[in-house]
Design a protein around this nucleic acid. Sequence first.
RNA 1: CGGGGUGUGGCGCAGUUGGCUAGCGCGCCGCGUUUGGGACGCGGAGGUCGAAGGUUCGAGUCCUUUCACCCCGACCA
Length: 426
Amino acid sequence: MRLSELFTKTRKQVPTDETSRNARLLIQAGFIHKEMAGVYDYLPLGVKVLDNISKIIRQEMNAVGGQEVRLTALQSKELWQRTGRWDDKVIDDWFKTKLASGSELGLGLTHEEPLTNLLTDYVSSYKDLPLIIYQIQTKFRNELRAKSGIFRGREFLMKDMYSFARTQKEHEQIYGLIRKAYFKTFKRFGIGDLTYLTFASGGIFSKFSDEFQTLTESGEDNLYLDERKKVAVNNEVYNANVLHELGLKKEQLQQKKAVEVGNIFSLGTKYSKVLGLEFTNESGQREPVIMGCYGMGVSRVMGVLAEVLSDEKGLVWPLEIAPAKAIIIKLGENQMVNELSEKLYKGLTTAGVEVLYDDRDLRAGKKFADADLMGIPYRVVISEKTADQGKYELKRRTQAQVRLQDYNGILKVLTGKTVGKLSNHS
RNA sequence: CGGGGUGUGGCGCAGUUGGCUAGCGCGCCGCGUUUGGGACGCGGAGGUCGAAGGUUCGAGUCCUUUCACCCCGACCA
């Protein structure tokens, strides 16, 4: 993408109606635009980030056998009434609307009901199970108070996955597998070291639900963290009994703030029983399916990355997530410089490398500042200084030193195996 | 939903006890000089002062109502 054609612009000043670091940076760099409280538009660079996060999630969820679907956002009142979750007294953050005919609809905030109901059409035998099904979809929640930028919005992108097992043992096996996949996913996001498995309230059939909490001062959850054991207890369930059960010692816990980036829990047969999702087992008897639920906030992860990986110059995206691997900065107008820049831009694009090309007629300082603000992992500068030797200057976002490389050298770094070996964040 | 704060060109802000043509910075347009870390000069364009109603000779400024946004709290499938 040529920056001369990109419609978004960076800003020197940030709107003061945002105080959260993630929203300020993302607005300043032109990744998102605020529509109203808790509701944000995703602009070209922001969409790329969401797509890259989603891509990693897809890879990891597919790796454990997940099948992707896309269910409707519009929800039938009758279906949710069957599980007792239509009532505003039960779920207070529904967005509800009406068909032209007058009948009520809800905007989906989670999808246990429709997916369970849908599967009754396809699951009838033990041979049809187990199943792991997920989607990445916009969710709507009528939060009383939106806060913390894109951490808690009223409309947000989420991965929600559901497992369907024949036996409790099989369920636990799947649950463990997915828990592992979650760790791997957060590691690939670049927040593995900051993300802790956290015991919390909320599970209906398990005593605890597993939350994945990323440490940050701007988080809204309070944890008691055992750094050695890599586990934490949510303030909600923190008491002497819980500590005893988990084998944690009060003296070894630190109090920390964190934001929940994932939450997984067992559902048992709560929904399958009510909605009639049953299968016939080997001995010909009907049994309800045992379910689990696995959430991960895609847009929230984007906010967390903006929040925790950024520095005083702006955003710092991990290589796999950045809207572009590299930004080519052309300095000055001269034939050699133009030719080298165009050649590299075309070469990288042809090689399938996502790259930004700053071909704008601006001063160097502005271009450098923008590249830093946008958090692009690699910066390639082309100017008169090195063009006559056919050299490019290569610099990482997080490092100070500059390396001189020729065309092939750059291509190798940005397309080759070398890329994977370099750490995302230093 | 309770408490606190804020709404003035695209963005950031100033605007005195009510007073004259509503200012400043950034950004934007034109010209020139510049050109490796957010350049400078000159000249421009751009405003229903969140909205509605009221008081007044006169309202950005005072009163009433209302909407929106932010923060703290409660809530959070």
